[in-house]
Deep mutational scan, measured.
Amino acid sequence: TYTFKVDNKDQAKKAAKWAKKLGLSFQIEKHGDTFKITVQ
């Protein structure tokens, strides 16, 4: 499981695209202005 934080929606979208490309499941949680992405 890999967790990282991004500062904006664009970065969150890029991370989601990357995870989908690799066939991984992911969750994006919004914490105020940051997004926490968990990829597994």
Results as ranks from 00 to 15, higher is better:
40 Q>P: 03
4 F>Q: 01
27 Q>Y: 13
4 F>G: 01
20 K>I: 09
11 Q>I: 07
8 N>P: 02
16 A>C: 14
8 N>E: 03
40 Q>S: 14
21 K>P: 00
37 I>H: 00
15 A>H: 04
24 L>M: 08
7 D>A: 14
33 D>A: 09
21 K>V: 06
4 F>M: 03
4 F>H: 02
12 A>K: 03
14 K>T: 06
3 T>D: 04
4 F>Y: 05
8 N>H: 05
16 A>D: 02
19 A>M: 14
37 I>S: 00
14 K>V: 08
32 G>T: 03
33 D>K: 10
28 I>M: 08
26 F>V: 12
14 K>A: 13
6 V>H: 02
14 K>Q: 09
38 T>P: 00
21 K>D: 06
29 E>G: 03
39 V>K: 00
34 T>Y: 15
34 T>S: 13
16 A>I: 14
9 K>D: 06
37 I>R: 00
32 G>D: 06
5 K>A: 12
19 A>Q: 01
17 K>P: 01
10 D>F: 14
9 K>R: 12
12 A>S: 03
25 S>N: 11
21 K>T: 08
11 Q>E: 10
4 F>D: 01
34 T>P: 01
25 S>L: 11
10 D>C: 14
2 Y>K: 05
19 A>T: 01
37 I>E: 00
26 F>C: 13
38 T>V: 07
6 V>K: 01
2 Y>D: 02
27 Q>D: 06
26 F>G: 01
8 N>F: 04
9 K>W: 15
13 K>P: 01
26 F>Y: 10
29 E>C: 13
16 A>F: 10
26 F>L: 08
12 A>P: 01
34 T>R: 11
15 A>W: 15
39 V>L: 09
9 K>Q: 09
13 K>E: 10
15 A>T: 06
18 W>I: 05
28 I>V: 09
15 A>M: 12
2 Y>E: 02
34 T>L: 10
35 F>I: 06
20 K>N: 06
27 Q>I: 13
21 K>N: 09
22 L>S: 05
4 F>W: 11
23 G>I: 02
8 N>S: 12
38 T>S: 06
8 N>L: 04
25 S>Q: 11
5 K>F: 15
30 K>A: 09
3 T>E: 08
17 K>Q: 12
12 A>L: 11
22 L>R: 13
3 T>L: 04
29 E>Q: 09
2 Y>W: 14
14 K>N: 07
24 L>Y: 10
2 Y>Q: 03
19 A>R: 01
13 K>F: 09
17 K>C: 13
5 K>S: 15
1 T>L: 09
25 S>T: 11
38 T>Q: 05
18 W>G: 02
15 A>K: 03
39 V>G: 01
32 G>L: 05
39 V>D: 00
35 F>S: 01
39 V>C: 05
33 D>S: 10
36 K>F: 15
4 F>L: 04
37 I>N: 00
16 A>N: 03
10 D>N: 13
15 A>F: 15
23 G>V: 02
39 V>I: 14
3 T>G: 02
10 D>P: 06
15 A>E: 02
31 H>S: 12
31 H>I: 14
3 T>P: 02
10 D>S: 14
19 A>W: 03
1 T>K: 12
17 K>T: 08
33 D>I: 06
18 W>R: 04
35 F>N: 01
18 W>E: 02
22 L>N: 10
38 T>W: 05
